[in-house]
Design a protein around this nucleic acid. Structure first.
Length: 559
RNA sequence: UGUCCCAUGGUGUAAUGGUAACACUCCGGUUUUUGGUACCGUCAUUCAAGGUUCGAGUCCUUGUGGGACAACCA
């Protein structure tokens, strides 16, 4: 990476300013604060890379903190999955924290706020309170319980805590300003009663703090210097600061919330609610379906942590709305895989090719390099015989000179093998080609050093020996959505833009050496793309996911 | 009829009052036993109008366009 030359983004500018104004570098501390109510997705990777990247840049700690204040939505399995994803991306957190660790502290502070006349118990229905709250363009009005006595507030809040009231009977509100331009400042709710067991605190608590009351105070307790979140939290900043004002010790670090734009990637959705709907509706097979842009889905698809980090790094951090083209992500994927993946031969749409002048029973073991990029990766043996499979699209009886592949009367190279010449084909009653015939030049064997072997032919085909071929299942994926921005249409639901052909399962013919590949390993099927071994693989059948195709300039010409 | 945020090629991001640039995409070329990779090149950008200034993408004003805010969610 060219870290040294990359200019600072506005977030780094903020930090540099603070440093220049006297903040000591060793006071810098960051955090990544997901709610454990779903799986991490590509949108989160920006926040993860930003916070952990800052930690690496300044060599200062980053906490992983679970914002677990709503037991109705959160589960321990998500806590586990999120940790795995962050680790897989290659980051290490300093402290593993939970907002639920701060419930007692938060409660004690709330009691003090009641005593100070800064908070009160409201006993109205949510509908009544919503009316008093006004709208973004009209101020709110004070509710009837706003001036309850401290004693009464204390007693009611204590009762809430002790489980004496049902959900919705009472809530605790901060007493700020019902006429504020900022809706969030119109006496925001601090606590509500929730009769649910929490995945960590069990039945200890009957009341749970709201996000705004929890987040800034958690940052403060952890002495986070900079608390970065997405733009939709901008209006929360005023409240974040107000709550901090109630508790902050001037000798300690006062956290600073700043906001950046969420990253949107084309042809996908990145909201937990929508991803969940795809899972529940059976559009995909779970959160880690390779078509999902969850971190776990991308991982199963064959994405590398490097590709995701380089992507996040290259798109940067800013404040304007954006829709990053999937091409960017795929560029970084190919870039990383090109260096990392061994090359193999696998025929996705096989048709038989008979080398008519090759001996019936002869089998040769040919040497094939594992990577043209890196000779140190070594060689493997590939069996060659009279009957092979090649791609159906690699043969035409006749074609113009733009077609570099096999055609009658013309020569092509079989990768790592011989030069062959097309002689004709056999078709069934429907005109479908069932067998292609060719002759080979025995002196043209790859690497033999003969004059014939040095001959230049325009096309090179991959192939597998028919009798040695290993049938494998290959899952070909396409974009999950047919439009760049499926969830911004004013009339249509994002579900209407689902690509019906996002998954195509085929049986391909692989070279025998591929049976040694392990689950999760990625290889390049030469000329076809990058593929990884799926966990669905069994002893009987290997299953591959197409991670991404190669760039294909021919496909563009051949329309 | 409010408050706040944002506006640079098709996309993303720089330029911190001093020559508008980098990457992706597209298109073209060289190399190539992958129509891949690598390398080279082409096309293409400051929302508008005023103002300040020797000088404005940058500062100011107004407008236009986009977005956020009315969950006992985060």
């Amino acid at each position: 990476m060219s870290e040294e030359t990359r200019p600072n983004n506005f977030i780094e500018d903020i930090i540099e300013d603070d440093l220049a104004n006297g903040l000591s570098k060793d006071k810098l501390r960051f955090r990544f604060p997901p709610e454990p109510n779903g799986f991490l997705h590509i949108g989160h990777s920006s926040a993860i890379c930003l916070n952990f990247g800052l930690g690496e840049k300044y060599n200062q700690p980053v906490n992983l903190r679970f914002d677990d204040t709503n037991p109705a939505k959160e589960e321990a399995k998500y806590v586990k999955a999120i940790q795995e994803d962050v680790k897989w991306l290659g980051y290490e957190w300093d402290n593993l924290c939970f907002a639920s660790d701060y419930f007692q502290e938060l409660y004690d502070w709330a009691v003090q706020m009641i005593k100070d006349g800064k908070a009160y118990v409201d006993s109205q229905s949510s509908e009544e309170m919503a009316i008093q709250k006004g709208t973004p363009t009209e101020p709110g009005v004070d509710g009837p319980y706003r001036n309850r006595s401290v004693e009464e507030n204390l007693a009611l809040f204590e009762g809430m805590k002790n489980g004496e009231y049902g959900e919705g009977e009472h809530i605790l509100r901060a007493k700020i300003d019902m006429q504020s331009n900022n809706m969030l400042m119109r006496d925001p709710i601090m606590y509500r009663v929730v009769n649910r067991d929490h995945h960590r605190t069990g039945s200890d608590w009957k009341i749970y703090p709201m996000y705004d009351w929890t987040h800034g105070e958690s940052d403060y307790l952890e002495q986070i210097s900079h608390s970065f979140c997405t733009l939709e939290f901008k209006p929360h900043r005023e409240l974040y600061d107000w709550f901090l004002d109630q508790v902050v010790d001037p000798n300690k670090i006062r956290p600073k919330q700043r906001e950046f734009a969420r990253r949107n990637v084309s042809h996908t959705v990145t909201s937990k609610r929508k991803l969940q709907k795809l899972v529940e509706a059976g559009v995909v097979n779970g959160w880690d379906d390779p078509r999902m842009t969850t971190i776990s889905g991308l991982r199963r698809r064959g994405y590398t942590a490097n590709a995701i980090k380089n992507f996040a790094d290259s798109i940067g951090i800013a404040k304007r709305d954006n829709l990053v083209d999937m091409n960017h992500l795929e560029f970084h994927l190919r870039d990383d895989l090109n260096k990392a993946a061994d090359r193999v031969m696998c025929v996705l749409d096989p048709v038989k090719l008979i080398i008519t002048n090759y001996p019936e029973d002869k089998v040769e073991m040919l040497q094939a390099e594992n990577s043209q990029e890196d000779e140190s990766r070594g060689f493997r043996e590939v069996p060659f015989s009279r009957e092979l499979y090649i791609e159906r699209e690699d043969y035409r009886e006749e074609a113009n000179k733009k077609f570099f592949r096999l055609k009658n009367g013309k020569e092509v190279r079989l990768k790592n093998g011989y030069i062959i010449k097309g002689e004709g084909c056999i078709k069934d009653e429907n005109g479908v080609i069932t067998e292609i015939h060719a002759t080979y030049d025995p002196d043209s064997k790859s690497g033999s050093g003969t004059e014939a072997s040095m001959r230049r032919v325009k096309g090179t085909l991959h192939w597998v020996s028919a009798s040695h071929a290993l049938p494998v299942e290959v899952r070909l994926y396409d974009r999950l959505f047919t439009v760049p921005s499926p969830d911004t249409d004013k009339e249509k639901d994002f579900m209407e833009f689902i690509n019906p052909d996002s998954l195509n399962v085929i049986t391909a013919m692989a070279e025998p050496a591929m049976k040694n590949l392990e689950v999760g390993e990625t290889v390049q099927f030469q000329r076809m793309g990058y593929f990884c071994v799926d966990p669905d693989t069994t002893d009987e059948k290997m299953v591959f996911n197409r991670t991404v195709t190669l760039r294909d300039t021919w496909a563009k010409l051949d329309v």
